[in-house]
Simulated scan of single mutants.
Amino acid sequence: MLDAAGELFTTCGYAATSTRQIAEAVGMRQASLYHWFRTKDDILEALLSGTVTRPLAWAERLARLPLAPEVRLHALTHLDCRQLWESPWNLGILYLLPEVRTERFARFSRDRDHLRTRYRDLSRAVVEALPPAVPGDFVADPDDEVVFRLTETLPNLRADATGRPDQPLRTADLGLHALGWRGDRTALRAASLAVSRPLAEPVGEDGGAGRSTGR
């Protein structure tokens, strides 16, 4: 059901999609759909939540591992970018819907803010571990949230049919570079992939990696 809704919302538009169309797409009566979701907004919330709850869980697990800050941030960015880039439907583009800015989606907004904070804290740890800057050099400000913002460019790249197959990994590299990290990129990638691969699973229909919707 969520897979059908994700396809319709991202290809036909949220406003133009009805619950009847979603029900018909999965071969059920509209009344049966209401057994699972009371409104179309509930369906949208479930899809959106899947794109942030999984990265938050990854961040929690990465925080418990004895990793250098740049490895932890790179791994989180890569995992998050993968689920935005490889999910069956471009769910991240739904963040831009005006409906999502309303109080109805406050829980999703809070979860997204928590994820933003995770990125900001990890970015700060990376910047603080850098060698002292040479006078006159640019010094990144973690409060600019550059890595979080770079991650959220992937839905737009998908919509424009641009980017590369390895865009998630490239974006993780770019995030560290934007913060001023200039270490061994090959070693960083190897360390990041070593911890992220056990966490990564095939991306599911709700935007989360490998999570069944049960719908």
Rank of each mutant, 00 (worst) to 15 (best):
E205F: 03
A190R: 15
A133H: 12
R107K: 01
S196N: 05
T39Y: 00
T153S: 09
T186D: 13
L130I: 08
L157M: 15
R112V: 04
R104A: 14
A106C: 02
P135W: 14
V139P: 11
G175N: 10
P88R: 09
W85G: 07
E103D: 14
T10P: 08
L84M: 15
C12N: 13
F108E: 12
A129M: 12
E103F: 01
L96P: 00
P198M: 10
R101N: 11
L79M: 06
R197G: 00
Q30S: 14
K40M: 04
G175I: 10
V26S: 03
G207A: 02
R149E: 10
E7A: 04
R215K: 05
S212M: 00
R72V: 04
L150S: 14
A57W: 00
C81R: 02
F37N: 02
P135S: 12
L97W: 06
G136A: 14
A133C: 03
Q83K: 08
G175Y: 11
G163L: 07
P69F: 05
L122Q: 11
G92V: 07
G207L: 09
A46T: 13
V100H: 01
W181M: 08
R54A: 03
V52N: 09
A191D: 08
F105A: 01
Q30V: 13
V134S: 14
E60V: 08
A23P: 10
A161R: 15
W181F: 09
T51P: 03
A200E: 15
A31Q: 15
C81K: 02
G136E: 07
G180W: 13
T117D: 04
G180I: 06
V195E: 11
L73V: 07
A15N: 06
T213N: 00
Y34P: 00
E60S: 11
A172H: 05
S123A: 15
S49P: 00
T153A: 07
A161W: 04
L73P: 05
W85N: 14
N156H: 13
L174Y: 11
F105T: 09
L62Q: 08
Y119I: 06
P66L: 12
T53R: 15
L8G: 10
E152S: 11
D80G: 03
F148C: 06
T11G: 01
S49T: 11
V203P: 02
R29M: 09
R110K: 12
G50Y: 01
V26G: 03
A57R: 15
W58R: 09
A59L: 05
Q21N: 10
D137M: 12
E60A: 13
N90W: 02
N156D: 12
L115E: 05
E152F: 15
L56H: 02
A31C: 12
D111Y: 09
T19V: 14
E128D: 15
T151W: 07
N90F: 06
A5K: 02
L44V: 03
E152K: 14
R72D: 14
S18I: 14
E99W: 00
H74T: 06
R82D: 11
R116C: 06
A133M: 07
V147Y: 12
E70W: 06
P98C: 06
A106T: 04
P98L: 10
T117L: 13
L73A: 09
V71R: 12
A23E: 10
L96D: 10
P198H: 13
T77K: 08
G6N: 11
R182T: 13
T10Y: 08
R116G: 07
W89I: 00
